[in-house]
């Protein structure tokens, strides 16, 4: 069993280092439809025909974490929601990427002195792309998505860093 796992790890290494594989990954990062607060409304607007920001980049909106690659945290994270987000993140299959959308997800935003808000989602899960704004315009989110695609292609995401350390 251990040998099999070792072999699997070796295969994963080869796959991750392959540019072709990364290029293919960057072409269809399926996104987890997961709305928290105001930014979720802008995320919905991004998906509508005016911006067409989701399907244009090969992103298919999935309602379950088990079929998704990208998680967009769109809103403030409270102490009560934090374990839930962590679990949702753990349920996603690897490789997985996180976009923190809006001030609240980046640093707590206007609720920085609240007794119940986690100051930034990166205290719970690793974040690849930060999209600032309150809330960010759909164009800003598009830029974040394009950025993430480039990072995946070039192997610069948090996932790749973790793999390189091992």
């Amino acid at each position: 069993m251990a040998v099999a796992l070792l072999k699997l790890d070796a295969i994963r290494d080869i796959v991750d280092k392959n540019y072709l594989v990364r290029w293919m990954r960057s072409k269809s990062p399926w996104v987890f439809t997961f709305g928290l607060a105001c930014c979720a409304i802008e995320f919905m607007a991004t998906g509508t025909p005016r911006f067409d920001g989701v399907e244009r980049f090969g992103m298919l909106a999935r309602a379950t974490p088990r079929q998704a690659d990208v998680m967009i945290v769109s809103g403030w994270v409270t102490n009560r929601m934090a374990p839930v987000i962590k679990r949702l993140y753990e349920q996603m299959p690897e490789p997985k990427y996180v976009i923190a959308m809006g001030e609240c997800a980046i640093s707590g935003g206007p609720w920085y002195d609240s007794y119940n808000v986690v100051g930034g989602v990166d205290k719970i899960i690793p974040v690849d792309v930060y999209v600032p704004g309150c809330p960010p315009r759909p164009e800003a989110l598009l830029y974040g998505i394009v950025k993430l695609r480039r990072m995946i292609r070039e192997g610069k995401t948090r996932y790749d860093e973790e793999r390189r350390k091992k």
């Binding site: 374990p83 962590k86 007794y115 986690v118 205290k123 719970i124």
Partner: peptide, 21 residues
């Protein structure tokens, strides 16, 4: 949540940094 200590809108409730997950 049920395990929260104190009642936050009372004036003697101090907002402090809590442990993160």
């Amino acid at each position: 949540p049920d395990d929260f200590e104190g009642h936050p809108l009372r004036k003697d409730f101090k907002v402090e940094e809590r442990g993160w997950y």
